[in-house]
Structures are given as structure tokens and as C-alpha cells.
């Protein structure tokens, strides 16, 4: 696995819109973004309503994922090309999610929606009609998903990477600053976690930094290549971005995303917290 297998440029995406066997998928929480214009032929996935269980805090199960992809007209043989807003946070989350359910060919558009817009590339308001498929998912691959007990057990023994902003890491603010700061959980971070914000891995236009820059970044921030790694943020989407960098771009082994993240950890009774 290398950068060319998992990441495509906006130029490549533009040249390949409509290519059979490729399905472009926009993933946002703000679905008005898609409705206001999207890559020609792209289908929409709503991060919240499509990918989250409507009752419990968890993913949709395997059967629901199969039903979702079947209804969207995505088949097991298709290459899924993901992009989205928020510097590809939710597209990276969807990438991880597709991998969790065993989809083989998945790619991200470098820079996502932001670079596409800044480049002034064309957007379409047409909703594509794709015939339904009979999608079959695999059992969830839990080698890439961490749960809370494993996080607690990893204190001092694995690379714990907190990818939130420094002010969230320190507990000064409890959520990214585009959201109101009223949260139930305590502020701070998991003891021994290193604060390597997701944003350090990206350029201002949302594209990923080069492999050389990324290797240097994690080395200088104390990432230990001999240890397993768990990345977390507030709800697991920014840490998907870092999971993508470490596992898919840099090819690190044993990297998990803790999607429970700070909203769960900071609400647990009795676990250690550092500020």
C-alpha cells in the first residue's frame, strides 16, 4: 500500500468522473454542501444519518451497511473514491469505515471539497441515478478499531496520539471552535498521549503533506515506530484523518482509530486524565 494506491489528485478525479467502475462519494455532515453542488455523478453519504446507528452510539451494523451501499448503487467490485468538506475529515472517516467492513478498493481525493472549490472546478446539482446492487460486507475488521478498555490499557505502552488542537488537548476548550463549548465531558487528554494535531499533516488547501514531511513530523513529535498506535480526537473523524496518514500513506503497522474518542473517554468514571 502506498500513496498512489489510496490517494488521487483533484486533476485525476476530474479526468475520471464518469469512468465505469469508479463511484465518487461525497461524505459530509452538512448535506447542504452536496445539495449546493458536487462532483458530477457523485453520490451522497450523510456521516450522521447514514453511517451512525440511529439509537445507540455506534456504527450501523453489517446488514445496514450492506443495505445502504446496495441502495446507493455501489457494488463490491467498484472503486470508491471519497471526498468531502472539513479538510476531508468525514471522507477519511468513511474511508476507515469502508475498510472496516472490508471494501477492497477505496481512495481519497487529495484536498477534498476545499481544494476542488479553491481551484474553481465544476460542480453539479444533478443527482445521479444508480441501479441498486446486492452489496456484501465483511465482518468488521477490529484490527483497525480501538475501544475504551484498550485505550486505558495502552497508557504508557503504545503510541497514543491525540490529534485535536492544542487548546482541546490542554482542556482550554472542549470542542473544535466552530461548535458551542457546552459539553458534558471533562477537559484534558489521556495520560501519556502525544498531541500531534491532524492539521499538521495537511496543507492549508486541505491536501496531505508529502511522505517525507509526514515521516519527519511524526518522528520529531515522538512517534515510536516500534509500538502499536491508537489515534483519537473528539468523536473519531479527525483521528481517521491521522489513521489514514499513518496506516495508508506511511504504511505503519498496527494503527487503530479510537472512534469513541474524547466524548467517551472524558465521560468515563474513574479513568485517569491529564490536563
Amino acid at each position: 500500500m502506498s500513496r498512489n494506491d489510496v490517494l488521487v489528485t483533484a486533476d485525476w478525479a476530474e479526468e475520471n468522473l464518469g469512468t465505469p467502475g469508479l463511484v465518487f462519494v461525497e461524505v459530509d455532515e452538512d448535506t447542504s454542501a452536496y445539495d449546493g453542488g458536487h462532483l458530477e455523478g457523485a453520490v451522497k453519504l450523510d456521516w450522521k444519518t447514514d453511517l451512525q446507528d440511529p439509537v445507540r452510539r455506534d456504527f450501523v451494523n453489517k446488514e445496514a451497511f450492506e443495505a445502504l451501499l446496495s441502495a446507493k448503487g455501489i457494488s463490491n467490485d467498484d472503486t470508491v473514491v471519497l471526498y468531502g468538506g472539513n479538510n476531508n475529515w468525514f471522507a477519511a472517516y468513511a474511508y476507515w469505515y469502508f475498510k472496516l467492513y472490508g471494501h477492497e478498493n477505496v481512495k481519497l481525493v487529495d484536498g477534498g471539497r476545499k481544494k476542488w472549490e479553491l481551484d474553481g472546478r465544476a460542480l453539479s446539482k444533478d443527482t445521479p441515478a444508480r441501479p441498486a446492487t446486492q452489496y456484501k460486507a465483511q465482518d468488521p475488521d477490529l484490527s483497525i478499531r480501538a475501544f475504551r478498555d484498550e485505550v486505558v490499557a495502552s497508557i504508557g505502552t503504545k503510541n497514543l496520539i491525540d490529534v485535536r488542537s492544542p487548546d482541546e488537548f490542554s482542556g482550554k476548550i472542549l470542542a473544535p471552535a466552530h461548535l458551542p463549548q457546552e459539553q458534558a465531558q471533562k477537559g484534558g487528554h489521556v495520560p501519556t498521549a502525544k498531541n500531534i494535531p491532524w492539521s499538521k499533516a495537511a496543507n492549508e488547501d486541505g491536501t496531505f503533506k508529502s511522505d517525507e514531511q509526514l515521516e519527519a513530523l511524526y518522528a520529531e513529535q515522538g512517534y515510536d515506530g516500534s509500538l502499536a498506535t491508537i489515534a483519537y480526537c473528539r468523536i473519531g473523524e479527525r483521528s481517521s484523518h491521522t489513521w489514514f496518514v499513518l496506516r495508508e500513506l506511511l504504511g505503519k503497522s498496527d494503527v487503530k482509530n479510537y472512534d469513541g474518542s474524547w466524548v467517551e473517554y472524558g465521560s468515563l468514571v474513574g479513568v485517569p486524565i491529564e490536563k
Binding site: 488542537s165 466552530h178 461548535l179 494535531p197 492539521s199
Partner: peptide, 10 residues
Amino acid sequence: DSTDEFTAEV
């Protein structure tokens, strides 16, 4: 933030 680190984007 005061160290020029990204905090949010809209």
C-alpha cells in the same frame, strides 16, 4: 491559536 496552530475552520 496564539501559537498559530489550527483550531477550527468554517
